[in-house]
Nucleic acid binder design. Structure first.
Lengths: 141, 141
DNA sequence: GTAGATTCTAGAGTCGGCTCTAAGTCAAAC
DNA sequence: GTTTGACTTAGAGCCGACTCTAGAATCTAC
């Protein structure tokens, strides 16, 4: 598979594919064909899929590289790999929780504006108490 | 409230607080006391709380500014505000879905390594089929 | 009143993650 | 045989979001 085809399939640009390779994100160096052109295997693409997921969940490139290096190093470091994955899972869970909070806030505001657009117009934009607990009444509609 | 106190309460640095103000993220310009020092009201802090949540859910500063400007402009643009919020809510939902997928992958791998660390050692690191549907058997343990 | 912490402004620097450019190689189509 | 287009490298550029610096002014405690 050429770099162009892989770009098509993964949604990454060819620039990004080369960049990821330079950054050491591929489990093994991509094979080269005839004129030094990259030839990707299905496994390469699958691994890229994993990288994409890890990126999408906020793992920095350096961490992905570290994990990749462990995998590349072969058997014997499973405990380390597990630690990396567990740590990241915690971050993902935290992130989901955070997103959930955001969603609540946004949904609250959406409801507020939806209501307002039907009924009244004297309510002032407000904020949720986020840091103290000292509700001062006037801020929450 | 001084900028230092607000930094303490919000978790933002004083640098970031000044930066956010320059970027027009505050609903109204922060009041100034005696020597030109910023004096934050509870409402300012509450609004910052909203900004922090929006940021945490991936809204870019430019979008937050845009929303802030709508709020600052006062009544009459509720429909626009609602549109901004709804659009962002869609993005948050998409993001949550994506995170969920990532979580599945990670959890799968964690289980795999947990199992392996107890039992065997000849399984090779693998990737989830992510783009095609052509399972080639050898990639999935 | 003086030391040390906090604040001010304007502007420069950093970092992560791409994204693009330039100059060149190569294969296939016409 | 030349043009077109996909590929190569090394390296520069860009963008968002901070983060820090310098130099001056001002508060707080002793």
């Amino acid at each position: 598979m050429s770099i162009g085809q892989v770009a098509e399939r993964t949604g990454l640009s060819v620039h990004t594919l080369r960049f990821y390779e330079r950054e050491g994100l591929l489990a093994q160096p991509v094979r080269r064909g005839s004129a030094g052109h990259r030839v990707y295997s299905e496994d390469d693409v699958d691994w890229l899929g994993v990288c994409i997921r890890l990126r999408a969940s906020g793992m920095p490139l350096t961490d992905i590289r570290r994990y990749t290096e462990l995998v590349r190093a072969g058997q014997g470091n499973e405990a380390e790999r597990l630690a990396v994955l567990r740590e990241h899972r915690e971050r993902v869970l935290a992130q989901m929780h955070e997103l959930d909070e955001c969603l609540k806030l946004i949904t609250h505001k959406v409801a507020l504006y939806e209501g307002r657009l039907g009924l009244r117009d004297d309510v002032v934009e407000c904020a949720q108490p986020a840091f103290n607990g000292a509700s001062r009444g006037r801020a929450a509609p």
